[in-house]
């Protein structure tokens, strides 16, 4: 009898679903305990007039209706989309390219990789904001270089069409975390695959196409999703460098959310904006996930 209970308990403990819940437990606790309530509050605030100081009052879907007529909102959405579309692919290609190059075996690889990683260590600090403004200022280094090849100086932060470019370049420049994730992914591809390919007489390009890309595809998917999300959330670059100007040409979505929440004391409106963003991004992530079934190759199979 006792043995039966014991073995039943054992069976329970070692059952796959039990193990699953045990390992997922930290997430479940964290989500229920510390994440869910703030998320629900922000959803609630999005239906209220809330200025952070006085108690909020329910106003139904008013905030969402206001969004429809807010030109600054539409512009920020457009600007952010353009920024995401331009910065994410360039950043990922660059990161992958550098990660590939730096798998070459030389004693200097570690040093080189450090060199390329350093920019990602200074993030959105004031020092970077300063140097970036300096580089792209009217008499800055970039314009001087353009001058050498006889291109007229560009007013980077004064021209509505150009102002996004320094911000995109800054994002691409800080490609370090994507790079090391790619590097780690490359390391995971078994060397035997390449040796086999070599024996089969495949050249380097074919090896890249048929071994590297498929082997790396889960990591590519990961970087694509995370970089898309974080590009949508971009705040620091615009906050420290352009403050959204000129004429809202770099007024990123998250920056406009921040302004509404903390500068304009309109937390209800900011919350509504955030939930619209959640809807948009869910859609985009869903599309990427669905498409990934066709191009992501998993060793673990499914």
């Amino acid at each position: 009898m006792k043995g039966n209970v014991k073995s039943a308990a054992r069976k329970f403990i070692y059952r796959e679903s039990t193990v699953g819940y045990v390992f997922a437990l930290p997430f479940i606790i964290g989500f229920l305990g510390f994440t869910l309530i703030p998320i629900v509050s922000s959803l609630y605030y999005s239906f209220t007039d809330y200025n952070l100081i006085q108690k909020e009052s329910w106003i139904g879907a008013n905030n969402y209706m206001r969004l429809l007529h807010d030109e600054r909102f539409w512009k920020s959405l457009k600007v952010t989309l353009r920024y995401v579309l331009l910065s994410v692919p360039s950043k990922l290609c660059f990161a992958l390219f550098v990660a590939m190059i730096l798998t070459r075996t030389t004693k200097l690889t570690g040093f080189y990789r450090s060199l390329f990683y350093v920019p990602s260590l200074i993030g959105g600090s004031i020092a970077v904001a300063l140097v970036w403004k300096e580089l792209f200022s009217r008499k800055g280094l970039i314009n001087q270089i353009l001058g050498i090849v006889d291109i007229k100086a560009v007013s980077w932060f004064g021209d509505q069409k150009m102002a996004l470019i320094p911000l995109i370049l800054m994002t691409v420049w800080q490609f370090g975390s994507s790079m090391i994730i790619f590097a780690a992914g490359l390391k995971q591809i078994p060397g035997t695959y390449y040796e086999a390919a070599k024996i089969d007489g495949a050249n380097r390009f074919r090896a890249f196409l048929h071994i590297t890309l498929p082997g790396l595809s889960p990591v590519i998917l990961y970087n694509l999703i995370m970089q898309t999300i974080s590009a949508f959330m971009s705040f620091t670059q615009a906050f420290v460098i352009t403050q959204g100007g000129p004429n809202d040409a770099t007024n990123f979505y998250a920056l406009y959310v921040y302004d509404n929440a903390f500068e304009y004391y309109d937390m209800g409106y900011a919350s509504a904006m955030s939930w619209v963003m959640l809807a948009i991004m869910s859609l985009i992530t869903l599309v990427i996930f669905k498409s990934s079934k066709h191009w992501v190759f998993s060793e673990a199979g499914n």
Partner: peptide, 30 residues
């Protein structure tokens, strides 16, 4: 990623969702 049980997909979706709200609006409730 390795274990099968009821609710796994839901948990994963919730996890991705937590990434999609800007921190600016969660700051105060948190």
């Amino acid at each position: 990623s390795r274990l099968k049980y009821l609710g796994r997909k839901l948990l994963f979706t919730l996890m991705i969702m937590t990434l999609l709200l800007p921190g600016q609006v969660l700051l105060i409730p948190q």
